[in-house]
Design a protein around this nucleic acid. Structure first.
Lengths: 243, 243
DNA sequence: ACAAAAGTGTTACACGTACACCCATGA
DNA sequence: TCATGGGTGTACGTGTAACACTTTTGT
């Protein structure tokens, strides 16, 4: 304690030996959410090596010395899903001393949302055994990945209430019932059909299409599309999405 | 690109040489907010060495190899203010490749709130020249610290709306007008006096004291105190603070 | 014709907003 | 008694919640 307090600020002091301070590994881990029309799911991989052999884990990798953290995450996602331009948000950084057996590794956790239909498993990459797991079915996980997942889910639930990101999880064209069911699943609640429609439609963020559902054994529902441009325009005018 | 994709996941592959991956420095930077009854202020230090000699900077330090990130931040805050138990929240991690001239340093940014009256400058520590700056008066800053500050302010504004953390900036005992003025300053808006009182008081989070303001040349206002325990109890029952 | 889900209208009530008014103190 | 800000009541409009009802398809 004495040494810590009396030492000068490490990177403002004149010329101390900084080597021991530059010994950290940094990784990125990305919690990927999807929705198949029934359940909210997460993309998990099964570890093929020690430590935590056989455990489920959140996809991630060490950041390269000349690589940006976001770039690293996009690389992991590309290797895993074949997709670029996925919704991505930084979540939290976990920097406990003993969280990784191989050395001091701080991990920057991200979460991302993707349309589950777009996902194409990439067996050629390092994560052969990636699979969608319903979020309720998650058991024990490698490292502190369960903790990371819990934080991600909490963040997603908060975000979905005040930003129109639910659409990232739905196909381009969807019905209002699809949207309502997604929100109900995500937030673990029930909404009144009539009121939900009114609230969503009065926001004026959906483009009604001239298409209908097909091959359903009841009255077919109209399909809608999210109007991202309109949202941006409204945001700038102080509009705030809610629920 | 070819090499990156064909390489196995760095920390799950068998035994590659991981040395180049363990070469990062990790720092913590903490944006400290205060409120003096008029302005919202930030604690900034003036750098005494290159790089960015003489520039204003956010207080921070490199994380030690055997030190937790939160612990490091608390150490910085203690050295700077003499205080423990300050409100602290992780903000964002800045991990750009070229953000620090001395090497690859990722910084975990925090923000914290303190009662400005409790603050006692600590001239003995490395940050002799810490001072409160009104947030409008911030100019150029060292490294990417302006960007960090902007993120912190934005986060503070969001937090203050849906969590009762404004009280961290006020003295233990305060008037409703104090509270209102704080919120107005923080959020850059105006509230109707009567409605603001009603909203706050119906939340039942304030303990009315049997004390009044003194030495004011108008009717003295009642003093209140934030009831943290009651807030915790209400939170668990699904209560959600708003505005 | 029936089941099943789409889609709409009506009403009651809670809540936010605006604004007017009275109260207590120091000078 | 005046200026200043503390503190309160009311009336109005908007938004939300509950619920009943009509519509359209497949079988």
């Amino acid at each position: 304690m004495q040494t810590l307090n009396s030492r000068k600020n490490a990177y403002t002091s004149d010329h101390p030996d900084l080597t021991p301070f530059f010994s950290f590994g940094i990784s990125v881990d990305c919690v990927v959410f999807g929705y198949d029309g029934v359940d909210v799911k997460v993309l998990v991989i099964e570890r093929g090596t020690e430590p935590y052999l056989g455990y489920q884990a959140i996809p991630g990798d060490l950041v390269h010395p000349q690589e940006d953290a976001v770039t690293a995450t996009q690389r992991v996602l590309r290797d895993l899903t074949g997709l670029e331009n996925i919704y991505l948000e930084q979540l939290y950084t976990f920097a406990g001393v003993d969280r990784h057996p191989l050395g001091r590794v701080a991990t920057i956790a991200y979460f991302s949302l993707l349309k589950i239909g777009d996902y194409n498993p990439r067996p050629s990459s390092w994560a052969t055994d990636a699979q969608w797991m319903p979020i309720q079915a998650l058991g024990e996980m490698a490292f502190d990945h369960k903790e990371i997942f819990d934080a991600a889910l909490q963040r997603l639930q908060a975000r979905v209430r005040n930003q129109p990101i639910g659409f990232e999880l739905l196909p381009e064209e969807f019905t209002l019932a699809d949207l309502q069911h997604l929100y109900e699943t995500l937030l673990n609640t029930q909404f009144d059909k009539a009121n939900f429609r009114k609230k969503i439609l009065t926001m004026d963020l959906l483009i009604p299409l001239d298409k209908m559902q097909k091959a359903v054994r009841h009255r077919p529902a109209r399909l809608y599309q999210f109007d991202a441009l309109r949202y941006e325009a409204l945001s700038k005018r102080g509009f705030h999405f809610e629920l």
